[in-house]
């Protein structure tokens, strides 16, 4: 389950922008990895976390993708966020951490490792997106 938590200052990102960012992140993640759309979670958190910048992207993905894919994914996500919100580069940073897929169950199924997705898993993801 890709989980993208956007830490933002209170009342700094209106709903319209949050919705656009969520759609953009979903498009980018699915375009880069082939994952079903329904598995992409995006949350905006106005928590008083202390990061190195006022805006921070804290992503969590399944482990097992290449460094190239991970770097491109993070770059694309951060670019979309900046473009939609107008936040300056120096005010925004991010990371993507990873964990074993088998530690998570979604839709009643243990997540497959990247590259080991089955037709059944894709079908379930499509059904969840439509339901």
């Amino acid at each position: 389950m890709p989980y993208y938590r956007c830490v933002v200052p209170k009342d700094s990102v209106p709903y319209e922008q949050r919705a656009k960012v969520a759609k953009a992140f979903t498009d980018i993640h699915c375009g880069n990895t082939g994952a079903p759309r329904s598995f992409v979670h995006v949350v905006f958190d106005e928590a008083d976390d202390r990061w190195e910048t006022p805006y921070f992207l804290d992503g969590g993905n399944r482990a097992g993708r290449s460094e190239e894919v991970k770097a491109e994914l993070l770059s694309d996500l951060m670019g979309a966020f900046r473009e939609i919100t107008g936040v300056a580069s120096e005010d925004f940073s991010g990371r993507i951490t990873e964990g074993p897929a088998k530690w998570t169950m979604e839709g009643g199924m243990v997540l497959p490792e990247p590259g080991e997705e089955t037709e059944e898993w894709y079908s379930h993801g499509q059904a969840a997106a439509g339901g």
């Binding site: 949050r18 919705a19 969520a22 949350v43």
Partner: peptide, 11 residues
């Protein structure tokens, strides 16, 4: 998660 702050599949 407050309403309007959580999304799945872009919705």
């Amino acid at each position: 998660i407050p309403e309007g702050y959580g999304f799945r599949g872009g919705e």
